[in-house]
């Protein structure tokens, strides 16, 4: 298993721990990641707001690079996954559009033939690696750890773009959590929005959403949330204090990156999983699984 690895902008700086721990996990599992160091930003959806074709062309540049590497793309960011899947689908479905975009790329000496697939890390773990195999790799089953699965939006919707899991009744996170030996809680808001895209635009609306998501997870009896998206992590972790201020209550819900939960079960130490970079400390939850 080998992929062109696209960590996304957030996990190169703010949520750097998500990318570094993903690499550690992949190393143990024997999943090859070739980092796309020269790839540009996917546009996070905002580029589509600005100009649809510019967004397509910038994404096509990323695809062209992966095509040259003869690898499919893997990303750890749900928003990158959604944006790239949508762009890729449009380019693959409309040959005239692909031609038009290729005319733009030509100026930069590039060409995309439409042969790349974009995957999210979660889906690669489940589809390509397989949970049976993963289970065998678990060194420290996360026994009695109560984890709220949180999908958020972009890993599921729009399902017409990639459609790995069912947005009405997703199960991949639950299956993963169980494979690691932890308990899944019934998280009512697991497919609802973390508000990240408007946190700088209409902050009160976004913080209200964040508060709701944290409250739902807490009410489900979870000790922590697991998130497959760095942007959801920023909302739920970094902005948790703001949500507490607005809801006048202590929430105290730690949010783990997907890679950290897997890493913990694989026996990677807490130190190496960089939990200290979280604003809401997961220490109380994870200590018993770490040397």
């Amino acid at each position: 298993m080998r992929y062109a690895y696209y960590p996304g902008c957030a996990s190169q700086v703010i949520t750097k721990e998500y990318s570094t721990t993903t690499k550690k996990v992949c190393q143990i599992l024997g999943i090859g990641l070739e980092e796309m160091k020269d790839a540009n930003c996917c546009g996070a959806g905002l580029m589509t707001d600005y100009n649809y074709e510019l967004s397509l062309a910038l994404n096509a540049r990323i695809f062209a690079q992966a095509e040259k590497m003869s690898l499919d793309i893997i990303t750890i960011c749900s928003t990158c996954f959604m944006v790239m899947s949508r762009a890729n689908r449009d380019l693959k479905e409309k040959p005239e559009l692909l031609e038009k975009i290729n005319n733009v790329l030509k100026k930069a000496g590039l060409r995309y033939s439409g042969n790349v697939r974009v995957k999210h890390f979660l889906f690669a773990l489940i589809e390509d690696y397989g949970l049976k195999k993963l289970k065998k790799m678990v060194k420290k089953p996360l026994k009695d750890m109560k984890v709220a699965p949180y999908y958020g939006c972009h890993i599921l919707r729009p399902s017409y773009a990639e459609g790995f899991d069912d947005p009405e009744k997703p199960s991949s996170l639950e299956r993963l959590i169980e494979a690691l030996g932890a308990d899944v809680t019934h998280n009512e808001g697991k497919t609802k929005c973390c508000g990240f895209q408007i946190v700088l635009v209409t902050q009160t609306t976004a913080v209200d959403m964040i508060g709701k998501r944290l409250k739902e997870a807490k009410d489900s009896g979870a000790q922590c949330i697991v998130s497959p998206c760095p942007l959801c992590h920023i909302s739920l972790d970094s902005y948790q204090g703001e949500a507490e201020k607005r809801t006048h209550q202590k929430l105290g819900v730690p949010v783990l990156h997907l890679s950290q939960l897997v890493g913990l079960a694989l026996g990677i130490s807490a130190n190496e999983l960089e939990f200290s970079r979280h604003l809401v400390s997961p220490e109380a939850v994870i200590m018993r699984f770490s040397d």
Partner: peptide, 25 residues
């Protein structure tokens, strides 16, 4: 360690390609 300081992002090597795409669009 989560302050998104601009200097941390750096610039990609192929920035000229990106600029050409912008110009063309």
């Amino acid at each position: 360690g989560k302050m998104p300081l601009p200097s941390l992002f750096g610039t990609i090597e192929g920035i000229d390609e990106v600029k050409k795409i912008y110009d063309e669009i």
